[in-house]
Design a binder for these strands. Structure first.
Lengths: 209, 209
DNA sequence: AAAAATAGGGATGGGACCATCCCTTTTTTG
DNA sequence: CAAAAAAGGGATGGTCCCATCCCTATTTTT
């Protein structure tokens, strides 16, 4: 059984990271620790294959580089056989190098760390040994979330909303079919159903229909 | 149709906040903006009932109090009729007062901002006019996430794991029944099923069984 | 004009999860 | 000891979503 630990004080972020880890491993257990103390207890009591760390924890000065390194270093030493991934909101290349030298396998900025990126990071680690993803804002349009749509319908709407100009809808349906491992006809169906729901409720549709 | 906008650069946090907003309103649309520019465009084009803002956005100095106030102020002026909620990782009472004075209805620290808290915050706003929740780490045990368990089974395990000493399981089942609006027998069933699944897979059970 | 793309539906079976009710045996508690 | 609590399971109906296949107009492209 694959075991992972996420050390992050912000609850919503911790739960989201736990979700990402879980999505990357079919069968697994993921623990979440709000403080370094809780993490230390768990690291002492059991073995972990993967540890995700945000160095900005309660009780430490987030602006002190020494404190940040101390947190990560202590965790790495307490779980030498695990893969260690550092996730931070205030990321920079210099700090990334520092954490790499003390044994981290990845350094990720929170901005741009989207659902699914985690799997790519794990791929990077197993092929290149290290993964670096610095923060940068890349969105040009907003995200949408409609409470009337099912997850599948939402994916259809999202992908269509981000369609590049000149691309045919049929091509998006094929892309969607690939990504979700379903039939292109089904993808088309979800899109049409989603669109119909939004129209019925009098919504302003996102750009690109 | 209730319309909300979440302005936050960290993708996972933005999506989580959008989820929280959605969970608080049965029928609604929630938009997410990674940058102030995207937010400004949307605020200009349509009306919003609720805006959630993290003042630490790309392009601004997160340590500059002036920048943080400028971000929030600009958004409040662009949507004077909306409810404005400020969410930040580096929260303090002083900043809370400042944002309150320029019209924010709530000031929330990210640590301790857990699923469900948002509804309480909205209650605070409608009854007292303002909600203040500063960050503080309160957990003493880790979160668990088992990929084999369904959501209901997970809730059963979670609540049982946080059982106070001396409390009977039966009481937890009643509590769970109240919270989820189900039968106490069903709650008991979920707990037993969850426990059996974990035992079958040879898991180390969380404290408290 | 012919071909392709798009919009808009209806119907179907399967699977996962929810919620309930029922049962027996073992352990703990008063 | 007697009663309550707890462990451990079987069976059922309902709902929602997934995925597929089918159909017909209308619009756009070539």
């Amino acid at each position: 059984m694959f075991r992972a630990l996420v050390v992050e004080d912000q609850t919503l972020m911790r739960l989201a990271l736990m979700n990402e880890v879980q999505a990357s491993f079919e069968k697994c257990v993921v623990l979440g620790a709000e403080t370094l103390n809780i993490a230390a207890v768990e690291l002492q009591n059991s073995h972990f294959d993967l540890v995700v760390i945000d160095p900005g924890l309660p009780g430490f000065d987030p602006t002190s580089q020494g404190d940040r390194v101390a947190v990560v270093d202590r965790i790495i030493e307490a779980s030498p056989s695990a893969i260690h991934i550092v996730v931070t909101g205030s990321d920079n290349r210099c700090e990334a190098d520092g954490f790499r030298q003390i044994g981290a396998a990845a350094y990720l900025g929170k901005t741009g760390l989207a659902p699914g990126v985690f799997s790519d990071v794990l791929d990077d680690i197993s092929t290149k040994g290290f993964s670096l993803r610095l923060s940068r804002a890349v969105m040009t349009k907003p995200d949408y979330r409609f409470s009337v749509l099912t997850p599948r319908e939402h994916e259809a709407i999202d992908m269509m909303a981000h369609r590049a100009p000149g691309v045919k809808r049929k091509e998006i349906f094929s892309l969607m079919a690939d990504r979700l491992a379903i039939d292109a006809g089904s993808a088309e169906k979800y899109y049409k159903q989603a669109r119909a729901k939004l129209m019925r409720q009098g919504h302003t549709l996102p750009q690109g229909l």
